[in-house]
Design a protein around this nucleic acid. Structure first.
Lengths: 148, 148
DNA sequence: CTCCACCTTGCACCTTGGTTCAAGTCAACC
DNA sequence: GGTTGACTTGAACCAAGGTGCAAGGTGGAG
């Protein structure tokens, strides 16, 4: 057996790193940001419970979808304390992520279509072009995705 | 007449800022990044030729499409020295931007669809989920056609 | 008890796209 | 020539999402 048991009920940060594929520095960062939590040993070392593994998986999947850590933190706050999401909770949060993805897709499609028009008109005239004059000034505030 | 002529053939940074709607600090930044250029007066002040106005418009439209300044700089390097893009050149560059937009849209759609599958399966299991394994690492040596 | 791998902390640094500030200079008008 | 607003520079700072390092502490095996 190895030196820090790999079958213990709790994980060290290094073990969590290996098993999740996430660098330990990132895990410490997530903890500072309040996305995951750990217990401390007498000697001040982190010990993670097994459900944190699922929590980290959730975080990485969400990030891969382009969700910010701030929004992920908001989502995780909706879950029971320190628990990994159940299947139903995961499905419910994923629904928000889907709405967000669809909104981003729609936005890009809108831009693409306006660009197509714009190529035809060759405008670039700063006063008249829709692309040059972003009307939707409000679109850039808050933690973006996830305004509940 | 105002203090710095607003009808001169060259523009000061403040005039360019007002006419383009881009903060002077951003214009200086673009110049440091090599996206726009200026002549200097004896007293070391910037003077922009009028075509820079169109160049800045091009930059802002491109940014609005989600193109990075680095990519915009590459695009602008394809143009004649210090000239604003002609209509044809603008159309030709815009085609690249369209390809880029379509690629981003396709990527988001792929993620959305995989998320939809994933919600059904409730996997989150780190070893088998496609969303959790961006590089297809797990897909190769798994039990065959089993996906998700 | 020793050894050594692993852990702890804080701090500095990276990228992108800028903003803000302080100190000093230029140019136009009177 | 003097006033005043616009201009110049570098440096510091912001957000996000981390990485890397140095100095020192922990903990399990032998």
């Amino acid at each position: 057996m190895s030196h820090l048991s790999s079958s213990a009920s709790e994980l060290t940060v290094g073990e969590l790193s290996k098993r999740s594929g996430v660098p330990a520095s990132a895990l410490r960062f997530y903890e500072r940001q309040g996305l995951i939590h750990s217990r401390r040993t007498n000697g001040n070392q982190r010990r993670y419970s097994r459900e944190v593994l699922r929590r980290v998986a959730f975080i990485r999947v969400s990030q891969r979808l382009g969700i910010s850590l701030a929004a992920i933190r908001c989502a995780l706050k909706l879950l029971p304390d320190g628990q990994a999401p159940t299947t139903e909770e995961w499905a419910s949060i994923s629904h928000y992520w889907q709405v967000d993805l669809n909104a981003r897709i729609a936005k890009l499609e809108g831009l693409r279509d306006r660009l197509a028009e714009c190529i035809g008109c060759g405008c670039m005239s700063l006063g008249t072009c829709e692309l040059a004059n972003p009307d939707d000034v409000a679109a850039k505030h808050g933690p973006g995705a996830f305004r509940l």
